[in-house]
Design a protein around this nucleic acid. Structure first.
Lengths: 184, 184
DNA sequence: ACGAATAATTTTAAGCTTGAAGTTTTTCGA
DNA sequence: TCGAAAAACTTCAAGCTTAAAATTATTCGT
């Protein structure tokens, strides 16, 4: 079976509404001697994109929500005293401007509250409302089930090995980013 | 060192322009017994987000380009006879409507050409122009170097183990998606 | 006391993305 | 032959995302 056929077979196995074609094979023509890293990167990206796309689809269909909103609520779930926008931005790894709009929408829908800090009028403090917390708990339970299902065919041993190897990869990435800039 | 301190230490190691705070620890409160899968998912997501964000930043700063444009050009790079929009959409794992706009922009900038199929007037065929191909080769070479650098602290053995474990994870994901829908 | 520097968020313009509806074309079955 | 169904792409509304500029507030040094 040639590569194109193998690729199409994998596509057929996927039940997602929109058919997708696996892009990992384009790495073959990578310049120089970087085939191994590129292949690793594409596979990492393919895995995370598949999961993310499916999670987004289910959040929309089952809860009429979005992944960024879910993520923001997850940040607030453990912060019973609320959180400032700057910290939310850092934890979600997105720009402050994006947080402003996300917060606006969640405030409008009643999921979170926002107040100005009593000690610094530049600072906004946001927190889940009781309604928001209840909604989040339902989404979080469903989300955990989806992830368990998607990852469920992986053996416990393979899962542990993968977790450990991803930790090493993460240290490589963070280390590389660190050397390019100066520590915070 | 408590968890918050450990988290801050990792943040300090990162040299990205915007400070980020590692979100992996929020998994601790996962409902039920799904902590392991959620932890794995968050780490996978953190790794791919870190790399993607850095690649986007460098493409913008060094080539005044974007990741979707680079990705589209990568699809076309091996298709010397061009490619139809529907296949591009599948390979890039994005909706057809998005491809329409991306193609429009790359055509305007002279990187790709678009023609109507001689045999089916619904179908558009796009291909890299000579200019586009030259630009892509420069970006691809740089991109490969960036990925090699980001992944470079991972040993060859660890890289091979990770690639293999990600293949297993991918099969779990694809298998799970498959059972939820019907094959294409 | 006061002006400059810094900080936190908001606003802006530009780009990407989705799903659904719309348009045009081709295919298919009666 | 012809109308319905399907296909390929485009358009649309809504949401997300970035970096940079703008606004408001606080801090700091003289």
């Amino acid at each position: 079976m040639n590569m194109a056929e193998q690729k199409m077979d994998e596509t057929k196995a996927a039940g997602a509404a929109a058919e997708w074609i696996d892009g990992e094979t384009k790495v073959l023509e990578a310049p120089g001697d970087h085939g191994a890293e590129l292949r690793l990167w594409l596979r990492l990206l393919t895995c995370s994109t598949l999961v993310e796309t499916e999670v987004r689809r289910r959040l929309r269909e089952e809860f009429d929500s979005t992944l960024p909103r879910f993520d923001l609520m997850a940040q607030l779930e453990r912060a019973s005293d609320g959180m400032v926008l700057g910290e939310v931005s850092k934890r979600m790894m997105v720009s402050p401007g994006n947080i402003t709009v996300l917060v606006e929408r969640l405030a409008e829908s009643g999921h979170i509250s926002r107040t100005t800090s009593p000690t610094d009028r530049r600072v906004q403090i946001i927190a889940l409302t009781p309604f928001g917390r209840a909604e989040f708990e339902k989404m979080a339970a469903a989300h955990a089930g989806w992830i368990a299902d998607l990852f469920g065919r992986l053996s416990t041993k393979d899962g542990a090995v993968l977790l450990d190897e991803l930790a090493k990869l993460k240290r490589s990435i963070v280390g590389s980013l660190g050397k390019a800039g100066k520590p915070a």
